[in-house]
Each structure stands twice: as C-alpha cells, then as structure tokens.
Design a binder for these strands. Structure first.
Length: 585
RNA sequence: GACUCCGUAGCUUAACUGAAUAGAGCACCUGACUACGGAUCAGGAGGUUGGGGGUUUGAAUCCCUCCGGGGUCACCA
C-alpha cells in the first residue's frame, strides 16, 4: 500500500475511532480529479455522532492534516477530500516507479502464502473451442496477479482426460478411424470422430451402449482400450501445449482426471466413514438435503466414479501436496451447484480448509441462436479465432506501418492481445455472445488501444534518447527491460507541477497497485483492464495537449519522466493480464 | 416446477460493493497532423438503470413482486 494511503487511513481511524479496515474499505477515489486523490464519505459517521455528515466533514477538515504526503484536506458536502502533495507524487513516487521499473506495482502482501489456481482444463479428445478461452485467460491473469502480490502460485490444468467420451472415441476410431489422419491433425480428427459418433448414434442407438462398454474396459485396464486412450491423450496434449505456448501460458501441473483413479476408493471410504454415504438404486450417493442442497451421486451403479468424487480426491491430494492457503477454481457459472456440493462435502469430510476453496465463475460464450455444442459440431475453434486475429493485425500493420521490423511478433502480440483483453475487460460473470466483429475489434476499448499508447510512449522516449542520454532517468537508450539501480544520477527535483493532463497521469500511476489489490480481492482481472484503459486514455489526452520533446528544459524533463512512468505501468499492467506490449506497432 | 445468475444510451458495457452530475466504447454528425505515430484527439447527439412496490438521510446497487433471457436440478464434466 502506498504510504500516503496508509497515513490517511491511520489518521482517519484514530480521529473517528473506526477500525482501520473499515476506514480502508470506505476510502474511495473521487470521481473528478479536482476533488483530490482520496475521499472519505462521512455518512456512516452521521449516526454515530448524531450529526449531519456535512457538518462532520467540515469539522474534520479543520483538523491539522498537512504532512509529508498530504497537502490539504477539504470538505465538500459530506465528503472529506484529500489532496496529496504534488512534491510527493513527482519527487518521491515518480522516481520510485522509474527506479523499480518492471517490478513496480509488485507487493509483498501474499508473501509466504500459496494459492492453487485450477483453470483451463480442456477435455482431451474434444476441440479447444472459444468456450475454453475464458477459463484459460481469466485463470492465467489471476495467476499472474497473485504472483505479483508475492503469493506462491500453483497453476493446475486439470485435464478432462477420463470419462465416457473415451468410450465413444474408441468405438468411433475402431469403426471409421484412419491412423494417418489422426497423426496429421489429432485434435481436429478426434473431434471429427466424436461428431460422427453422435450422428451415427441417432440412427444406431446401440453405439451408446457399446461406448459405455468400451469405457468400462478402459477402466478395467483392457490393453487395447488403454493403448488407444494413451495415444489419444498424448496427441491431444501435444496439441494443447502448442496452443498454450502460442498464448504464452504455462502450467505448473498437468495432473488430469485420470491421475486420481487410484484414489477414488479411499475418497469414497473416507466419506463413508463420516456417515455421508448411502446406497440408492445401486449407486452411492451423499445426502446433502439437510444443507439445502440436492443429493449428489458419488458412484454410479456400474461402479464408475463421478466428477465430484474425482474433484474431492484431487482437492485432498492438492492440499497434501501444496498445503495451499487458497484454492481457486476458474470454472463456468453453470457448475455453481456442483461446487456448492463439492465444497460442502469437503467440509463434512472434516477438512477445515474447505472454506479456503473458491469457485471463480464466469458466464457462457454462446451464439446468437443458442449455445455451442461439441456434439453437434457447433463450435468455433480457439485456434481459428487467434489465427484470424493475428492475420488481421498483420494486415493493419501492412497498411499503417509497412516499414515496421518484426511484423510477425508484433502482429501476434496485437492480435492475441485484442482477443485476451476482449475477454478480460468485462465482468466475468456475464454471458457473452460470440461475434467475429467484436472479437476482431482493434479500436476503442481494446488492447491495441493500450498497446498503441505504449508504442507512442516508447516513440517519445526513443527520440529523446536519440537526442540526449536519458538513461540517468531510469530508462536506458535501448529501451530494454532494464532498470537503472541505485547508481543512477539523482532525478531532478520538480518545483512546478504542470497541466491537468499531467496531474491525471501521475495520480493514475499512484493508484496502480491499489487496482491490483482490488482485482485480486475480487478475483476480477477486469478491474485492472479498466484501469489500464483509463491510464492509456489519460496518456492520449496528455499526448495531444502537452508537447514533450519541444518543451522548455524543465518541463521537458518532468514530462519525460512522466512518460517513462506511464510506459512502466502500461507494460507491467498488460503483462499481468498476459498481454505483450510491443515498442512499435 | 424449484433454485440460481443476468437485465443500464440503437449496440457492447462501467460505476471501487449503499453515496458526489450514471461514466466509457462502437455506430452516427462536426472538427484536428507546417509538435513527439490519425490504431489518436476535441466537440455534438443519445438514459424514467426491464416494470411496480419497499428499506434508507441516500438505491443501478439491498428486500419483495411481476416481466424477459441464460443456467442448473441422481448415474456427463
């Protein structure tokens, strides 16, 4: 937390008698920068002191506030508004940003704590569709956000590599399969077989029973079934990993559903020993009605375990292995009930850490005319979306900046950025309609807008560096990721603080780490995405109104530092969302 | 049917979890490169926050109800 904020909270707490956390949550950022950098609404105090909030604010404003951080405090109606000292912002905070560079915004709040993030989890043998985009992108951003707060993060890809769909695939492959085509395009081809299976099963329902029987054989370790399964699994995994590499995503563990096969029995036994299990129509169920939840099935009458049993086994295993302080499941909102049952069962099984497990739900991606369906072949491959986005970025580069170097990597950064950001920008709980036009939009509230701002920042710094060495200001001439450490010459002390556009920028930069904390607190990367948009907007206004390179020396120095700071925050912020920031585009 | 989520400008949406004049983007209209990149910027128009009640000093936000849409509800994950 910024020392200004800390000081304001502490002093408000002692003045009002409210506990610090309470002050902290009610401390807000005023809607208009002319109202100051922080605001404290006095409404809650009205009842306590039996006085009008306006009066309370006015009285509190009389207090002796000024300090190294705080310049003045004013009451505006029922609000107590804090104006932070410009000299602090420009002469302490800004140098700190420039000094810390790539690690600016990184805090130690999660130090010593471990958080497990379960995300992406595609089904092997099913295509990686845009439907999987959300979990993948949100999970990745959360991993990076938690890491930036000092948490040890374990990203787990709980692969859907077990289940009756493998019975279907084996049946389809044995009947219509072609080994060569499988090797050429594994996931595509398996998907083709999967769709064909369902088509044929319409007219030949016996196929379904055959599939169940093959899955049973697989579970019993039948050699042919096992070999096919392993083959399918290995090929699919390779394909997925190619995609993850392309997206710049990596996992700490690829333990999938099949890896818990040998722990299912003991999990069921544990539940049984707690008196949670009873038999019903040949199956094993857990009765959760006393807790207002529907009964759930742990084992089918044919002996096969279900999803929830696997999740229980996996959770227990993960706690043994990582002894996490928190575990997040980045899984669609349609599974909310499942997670309620799952967490309740963990609790009833006696695991005190059940309360540290959180479902991070998100809305469905659907078409205008209904939801996507793998079975019916109504899906859009994520790979196709990414490819088209990158191609489009490439076309725009050819049109606007044909002399650009490294067009391919820039096109990739911009195209992928647009898709990723497009998913992260909105509240994750909302359903989204799949729309080519929207997903390929590069103007307005998009990653390319932020990336473009960043590229212009870099352009200014590059020109400035060409004219004079500004490396002493925390930026080396190559614009590499380096930060100059303590040996840099001290920055010039600013005594004048410039235009409103400059104010907006420095204040926005001051709030960076607060936005990260907020995004982590609510597991909502969208907060950070919005913030970056706001900062980029602020920069663009500044850019059009405040010349940097041609300004007088004092102003030029100040603005150069400001711009260098913006570069760091935009770049770090995008990185936290899993998006690259090219220097030119 | 029960439970649950969502409903804000023509479209996509924000609002720091109950507070300052509901803020953006797209599309539309008008302007801006003899200053650092026009993937940009300035301005205009566009709102009974689905309807109706209630709680509160204060409601887009909480409660009730109705309408519309999504999701889930024992042998899928």
């Amino acid at each position: 937390m910024l020392p200004v904020r800390k000081e304001i909270i502490a002093r408000l707490a002692s003045l009002t008698g409210l506990p610090e956390p309470e002050v902290e949550t009610s401390l807000e950022i005023p809607p208009d920068p002319t109202l100051g950098e922080y605001a404290f609404p006095c409404f809650p105090l009205a009842r306590r002191f039996k006085k009008a909030p306006q009066l309370i604010a006015a009285e509190m404003a009389e207090h002796d506030w000024p300090s190294d951080y705080v310049e003045r405090v004013e009451s505006v109606g029922p609000y107590l508004n804090f104006h932070v000292r410009r000299s602090y912002l420009y002469n302490t905070l800004l140098p700190q940003i420039l000094r810390e560079g790539p690690v600016y915004g990184i805090l130690a709040e999660g130090k010593g704590k471990t958080v497990v993030v379960d995300y992406s989890a595609p089904n092997i043998a099913k295509p990686f569709s845009v439907g999987h985009l959300r979990s993948t992108v949100i999970g990745n951003a959360l991993c990076r956000l938690y890491r930036s707060l000092g948490y040890k993060v374990v990203g787990i890809n709980h692969l859907g590599d077990w289940g009756t769909q493998f019975g279907k695939l084996i049946v389809a492959y044995r009947q219509w399969g072609d080994a060569n085509r499988l090797l050429e395009e594994p996931v595509q081809y398996l998907y083709h077989l999967y769709v064909r299976f369902h088509q044929e099963a319409e007219s030949t329902p016996e196929l379904e029973e055959e599939a169940r029987s093959w899955f049973r054989r697989l579970e019993q370790g039948d050699r042919e079934a096992r070999e096919l399964w392993e083959h399918f699994r290995a090929l699919s995994l390779e394909d997925f990993q190619r995609l993850y590499r392309y997206l710049g995503i990596s996992f700490d563990s690829y333990m999938g559903e099949s890896d818990y096969n040998d722990r299912l029995e003991e999990t069921i036994e544990l539940a049984r020993s707690r008196g949670l299990v009873k038999e019903s129509e040949g199956a094993l169920v857990a009765d959760l009605e006393p807790y207002g939840l529907p009964t759930c099935l742990l084992r089918k009458k044919d002996g096969a375990a279900l999803y929830i049993t696997r999740d229980l086994a996996a959770a227990i295993y993960r706690h043994e292995t990582y002894s996490f302080d928190q575990m997040l499941y980045v899984v669609g909102a349609e599974q909310t009930l499942h997670f309620q049952q799952f967490f309740k069962l963990l609790e009833l099984m006696g695991f005190s850490w059940a309360g540290n497990c959180t479902h991070v739900p998100f809305g469905l991606i659907h078409f205008k005319d209904g939801r996507m369906s793998t079975r019916q072949g109504k899906v859009i491959f994520l790979e196709e979306v990414l490819k088209r986005a990158v191609e489009l970025a490439r076309e725009i580069i050819e049109e606007k900046n044909p002399s650009l170097n490294e067009k391919d990597s820039v096109a990739r950064a911009v195209g992928l950025g647009a898709v990723i950001f497009g998913d992260l920008i909105n509240d994750r709980i909302k359903d989204v309609e799949f729309d080519w036009e929207k997903i390929l939009d590069f103007a307005g509230e998009t990653a390319p807008y932020i990336q473009y701002s960043h590229a212009r920042v870099c352009s200014i710094l590059r020109r400035a560096a060409a004219e004079e060495m500004i490396s002493a200001n925390g930026m080396d001439t190559e614009l590499k990721e380096t930060t100059t450490s303590g040996d840099a010459a001290p920055l010039k002390v600013h005594n004048s603080f410039g235009e409103p556009e400059e104010e907006t920028l420095i204040i926005a930069m001051a709030h960076f780490s607060e936005e990260i904390v907020r995004a982590v607190r609510d597991n909502r990367p969208s907060y950070l995405a919005r913030y970056l948009l706001e900062l980029a907007r602020g920069f663009n206004k500044f850019y059009h109104n405040c010349p940097v390179l041609t300004a007088s020396e004092e102003i030029r120095q100040r603005r150069l530092q400001l711009v260098a700071g913006v570069r760091i925050v935009l770049r770090n912020g995008l990185a936290l969302l899993g998006i690259e920031a090219p220097q030119e585009m």
